[in-house]
Design a protein around this nucleic acid. Structure first.
Length: 518
RNA sequence: GGCGCCGUAGCCAAGUGGUCUAAGGCGGCGGAUUGCAAAUCCGUUAUUCCCCGGUUCGAAUCCGGGCGGCGCCUCCA
C-alpha cells in the first residue's frame, strides 16, 4: 500500500511522491524564542518527528529543518521588559526548547537554523521580489504586494477582496493594499537592526521561513508543517513570496496539525454534559483559553514535573494529528493508565527471558523486518496481521491513533502467549516459546519505536532518596515474607495496605514479592 | 460579516460507501488465577454512529436542512 498524506493545499489525501527519489525535505515552523515552551509548541515537533521516523523506516532519506525565530517584536519587547539583551533571552529560550524536544524524544530534526543567521538570504529574496514588482519599498519598510500574486489565497482559501471587505483587516494608509504585508521593517532607535538597501531594519515575520527553507531545502521541497493557526497569514504569505521569487512550486504537501486546547472544565471539553455547571464552570471555561498567545499556559518543564514525557508524547499521538486535542491533566492521566500495562509487560518479559525489552534488536527498515512465521501458528498469524494493520494505519495519513490501538492489541497477544504457555511457570523451559515471545516483543518494539515511544526505560520516578527507600523496602518485604510464610495474613496485609497508602504497590509472585511506586 | 473544522458507548478515541450486528484504551460488570490482593488472561459493556430528510441495491461514512461545539480572518505551534 502506498503512503497517503493529507495536503492542505488540495484539502485531500494524496499519494506521497517525493520531488527527488528517495529523499524527503521537511520544514517545520519553529518557535519564536521569547518565552518557555508550552505543550502546544511540542505538538508539531512530535508529529513531524513521528512522520520523519516513519519515512526513514520506509527507506527515505529525511532532511528535517526546524527554524528558531530569534528576532521579532515579541522578543524585543520581552527582552526590554526583563532588561536583558535580545540575544541572551533568545539563547536561553532556545536552550529550553531544545531541552524539551530532547525530553519528548524528538530527535529526527537535522537542522535548526536561526533567523538571524539568514538575514542576507532574506534580503536576496526581498530584492528579487522588488525587482520583479512583487514588492515595494516605502519609508524604510518593504511590503509584499498581495494582489500581484495571482495565486494569493490558494492555501488558506481566501480571496483578497473578501479579506479587505472583512471588518478586521486594519487599514494601514501606508500600505498600498490592506492585504499587503511587511517583508522588511524599519527599525526604531535602540532596536536590533541590520543594514539593508532600504535602510536599517529587521525582517518581517514570514520572510525568514522562505529564506531558510530555500537555503537548506531548495526552492521546492516536499513537506511543510506547522499548526493550523499558521495557515493564514503566515504560510499563505510565505508561499506567495517564495513562489513569486523563484517561479517554482514552493511546497508539495502542506501538513497542518490541529491545535491543542487547554481545558479542565467539564462543560467545555466534553460538550454539554454539565449538569451542575454554574459559576465554577464558567470560571474554568474562561481560564480554559487557547494555549498560545499571551495567556500563560504551564511550561513544558512544569508539565513534565507532573506527567512522564513518554505519556505526554503518546497522549499527543493518541488523536489524529489534524484534530484538535483537549489538553487536561485527567486526559493525560488516562493515557498513562493505559501505558502502565506496557511497562508491566516489559518487566514480565525481562523476568521470563532475562533480557531487557529495551535492548531487543529490531529492524530499522520496513523491508528488513523479521519474518513472522512459526509455532504457534495462530500467534504468528496474529503478529503478522497486527503488523500489517499498524502499517496500514500509518500509511493512511499517519493515523497514529489507530496505530496505538494496534499496539495495545499486540501487547494483549503477547500476554496471552505468556499465559497460555505458562511462560512464567513451567513453560519457562520451553525455548521455542520463549523465542516466539521474543520475536513478538521485538515486533512490538519495532512498531512502537516508529511512534517514538518505548525506546528506552523511562527515568525512574524518584521523589526521595532511592538508595534508602530500596534498603527499607528490602527490609519491610523480608518481614512480610516471614509473616506470609507463617500465614500471618493480618500482618502481611497490614504491611501491604500501609505501603499502598505510601503509593507503593506490592505484587506477590511465586518467585517473590515485587514492589513499585504508583 | 467571510472562510473552515468537528459531533461515534459513562469518558478518550479509530473507522469516512458493503468484511461495521463499529478497533483500541480508561472505567464498569462476570469468570480464571491469588491466602486475600496486585499483575495477567478469558468473557461482557454502542443493533448503532447529534437530529430530520434525500441519493444509493446498500451510509456512521455522500448530499441538503436543523441543532450543538470549536477554530481562523490580529500575535500564536
Amino acid at each position: 500500500m502506498t503512503l497517503r498524506i493529507y495536503n492542505t493545499l488540495s484539502r485531500k489525501k494524496e499519494d506521497f511522491q517525493t520531488i527527488k527519489p528517495g529523499k524527503v525535505g521537511i520544514y517545520l515552523c519553529g518557535p519564536t524564542v521569547y518565552k518557555h515552551s508550552h505543550i502546544g509548541h511540542m505538538v508539531g515537533p512530535v508529529i513531524i518527528d513521528t512522520i520523519a521516523r516513519y519515512l526513514t523506516y520506509n527507506n527515505y532519506e529525511v532532511k528535517f529543518v526546524n527554524n528558531i525565530t530569534d528576532i521579532d517584536d515579541k522578543l524585543i519587547n520581552k527582552a526590554a521588559e526583563l532588561n536583558i539583551s535580545v540575544e541572551k533571552l533568545a539563547a536561553e529560550m532556545t536552550q529550553d526548547y531544545f531541552d524539551n524536544l530532547n525530553t519528548m524524544g524528538v530527535d529526527t530534526i537535522t537542522d535548526f537554523p536561526k533567523a538571524t543567521d539568514y538575514i542576507e538570504a532574506m534580503q536576496e529574496i526581498i530584492q528579487s521580489l522588488i525587482d520583479k514588482d512583487y514588492a515595494y519599498p516605502l519609508d524604510g519598510d518593504v511590503y509584499f504586494s498581495a494582489a500581484a500574486d495571482s495565486k494569493y489565497g490558494c492555501l488558506s482559501g481566501r480571496k483578497i477582496e473578501e479579506m479587505i471587505a472583512g471588518t478586521r483587516v486594519e487599514a494601514n494608509d501606508k500600505k498600498k493594499n490592506p492585504a499587503d504585508f511587511a517583508l522588511w521593517k524599519k527599525s526604531r532607535p535602540g532596536e536590533p537592526a541590520w543594514d539593508s538597501p532600504w535602510g536599517p531594519g529587521r525582517p518581517g515575520w514570514h520572510i525568514e521561513c522562505s529564506a531558510m527553507s530555500r537555503k537548506l531545502l531548495g526552492d521546492s521541497f516536499d513537506i511543510h508543517g506547522g499548526g493550523l493557526d499558521l495557515m493564514f497569514p503566515h504560510h499563505e504569505n510565505e508561499r506567495a513570496q517564495s513562489e513569486c521569487c523563484t517561479g517554482k512550486t514552493y511546497v508539495r504537501y502542506w501538513v497542518h496539525n490541529g491545535l491543542m486546547q487547554a481545558s479542565d472544565a467539564p462543560g467545555k471539553v466534553g460538550g454539554q454534559h454539565d449538569r451542575h455547571g454554574d459559576v465554577a464552570v464558567d470560571q474554568q471555561a474562561q481560564e480554559a483559553d487557547k494555549l498560545s498567545g499571551s495567556k500563560g499556559a504551564a511550561s513544558v518543564k512544569e508539565l513534565f514535573a507532573v506527567h512522564p514525557p513518554e505519556i505526554v508524547r503518546l497522549f499527543l499521538l493518541s488523536t489524529h494529528y489534524r484534530s484538535p486535542i483537549a489538553f487536561s491533566d485527567d486526559n493525560i492521566r488516562e493515557t498513562g493508565k493505559g501505558i502502565e500495562g506496557f511497562y508491566r509487560f516489559f518487566e514480565t518479559f525481562e523476568r521470563i527471558t532475562g533480557e531487557s525489552f529495551y535492548q531487543l534488536p529490531t529492524a530499522e527498515k520496513r523491508e528488513q523486518s523479521t519474518g513472522l512465521e512459526g509455532d504457534p501458528a495462530e500467534y504468528f498469524q496474529q503478529l503478522s496481521e497486527l503488523r500489517q494493520r499498524f502499517l496500514e494505519a500509518m500509511d493512511d495519513d499517519f493515523n497514529t491513533g489507530g496505530a496505538i490501538g494496534i499496539l495495545f492489541e499486540l501487547r494483549s497477544t503477547l500476554n496471552a502467549l505468556i499465559h497460555s504457555q505458562n511462560l512464567e511457570g513451567a513453560g519457562k523451559q520451553n525455548q521455542a516459546m520463549i523465542d516466539a515471545l521474543k520475536t513478538g516483543a521485538s515486533q512490538l518494539k519495532e512498531l512502537s519505536n516508529l511512534l517514538g515511544v518505548f525506546r528506552k526505560a523511562p527515568a525512574k520516578d524518584s521523589g526521595a532518596d532511592d538508595g534508602l527507600v530500596n534498603q527499607l523496602m528490602e527490609l519491610v518485604l523480608e518481614i512480610r515474607k516471614d509473616a506470609r510464610a507463617s500465614k500471618n495474613w493480618d500482618i502481611a496485609d497490614k504491611i501491604r495496605d500501609g505501603l499502598a497508602a505510601c503509593q507503593i504497590t506490592v505484587e506477590d509472585r511465586p518467585e517473590g514479592s515485587l514492589w513499585r511506586r504508583g
